[in-house]
Design a protein around this nucleic acid. Structure first.
Lengths: 208, 208
DNA sequence: CAGCATCCGCTTTGATACTG
DNA sequence: CAGTATCAAAGCGGATGCTG
């Protein structure tokens, strides 16, 4: 990117990560540290492959990303965030918070990966009854199942399955997200394609 | 900007404010609410006038900026942030914090406006002795003088002059900033063009 | 197959000139 | 003062080809 040529911290930051796709690459690496080129392409639908290569090079030069030639049997290049790269998390969090209201008008044909739910869910949900036994919610939407669970008073979301989930949600991403963010009543959501099974109190415990 | 087409809050946020110059326009309006088109141009050295007009239109459509046709005697258009626009402040703060280390390698011919110091100074400085009488630092660098002063235990920076400053700093922006951020010792700074007069304890009170 | 590089058409940006 | 208009240059998106 061409520099803004301004002696200002915001402008200098944007000189480094203001390029199109750059912050989304950082998002992918925050969600999936040690990703292969192909993983990044899958997580960045719409990016041109030459741009991904360019950006990775730029970010590497800027000290945000580092590449590691994994030894056999993997024998592939892994891309990681440096410490400096991980310190972009507050920027992503702020953007996430600002952008969250823009999700309420539905998916509108946008691409979606269910592990993208990790950040909004962990930001929004809190365990309001950490003394109670832990709970787990199984979420099924789009490409892969996710688990939302309480761990030591914190709420964690990860790809995966649990067989003893206290609550199971499945349906379109925007509906599932709406319910999990407390913006949509389960009753209304059922009419819009939500499958809902288990204990509703679990949701109230995390939402409040 | 072309949409990323991803159902993700970060991507949707970037769809709105990820365009080149957009966040710097927001910076200007946060620093100078109710700015005229010409004020914005002065505060955004390097922007092409058609781009400024385009971005202001886009941001207005997105509900970030609003324009107000000021009545006489002003009789000009004023641009303001909406509430939604002001809520971008955490994003700017996060970018500022991330970009701050990039300022330490000097100004390198970059443009500078002294009121840009407001955010970094207020973010970095704290009044560690709020019970003591208030203090003021007069800062003179580049285009206009700035005052850094304690107000009810907070630190405020604003364009202007005070005649009873406890400390006066003047010199090149990067040197003055280095001293005020505590990254540069006054002694070393003097060798690099800093004029320094008054009570050094004032600085220690705000830095610690 | 993973990790690019190249080519090409299109869009965005930048610089400058001009206007109500 | 607050923009349009114009045009060249750079950046982006999509397709495809190359190399280990």
């Amino acid at each position: 990117m061409r520099s803004y040529g301004q002696y200002c911290a915001v402008a200098r930051a944007l000189d480094v990560i203001g390029d199109r796709w750059s912050l989304l690459i950082v998002r992918e690496l925050l969600l999936h540290d040690g990703a292969r080129y192909t993983d990044l392409r899958k997580g960045l639908p719409g990016i041109a492959t030459n741009l991904l290569a360019d950006r990775l090079r730029d970010l590497e030069e800027a000290g945000v990303v580092e590449r590691e030639d994994a030894p056999p049997p993997v024998a592939t290049t892994l891309f990681r965030l440096t410490e400096r790269g991980r310190s972009l998390q507050p920027v992503l969090r702020a953007l996430l918070a600002w952008g969250a209201p823009l999700l309420t008008d539905g998916q509108r044909g946008d691409e979606f990966r269910s592990y993208w739910l990790k950040f909004p869910l962990e930001a929004q949900l809190t365990d309001h009854a950490p003394d109670q036994p832990p709970v787990a919610i199984q979420v099924q939407t789009a490409d892969e199942p996710m688990v939302v669970e309480t761990v030591d008073g914190a709420v964690r979301a990860r790809p995966g399955v649990v067989d003893d989930a206290d609550l199971t949600l499945s349906g379109p991403p925007d509906i599932v997200l709406g319910v999990l963010m407390g913006a949509l009543e389960p009753k209304a959501a059922k009419k819009r394609g939500l499958e809902y099974a288990g204990d509703p109190a679990v949701l109230r415990r995390l939402l409040r």
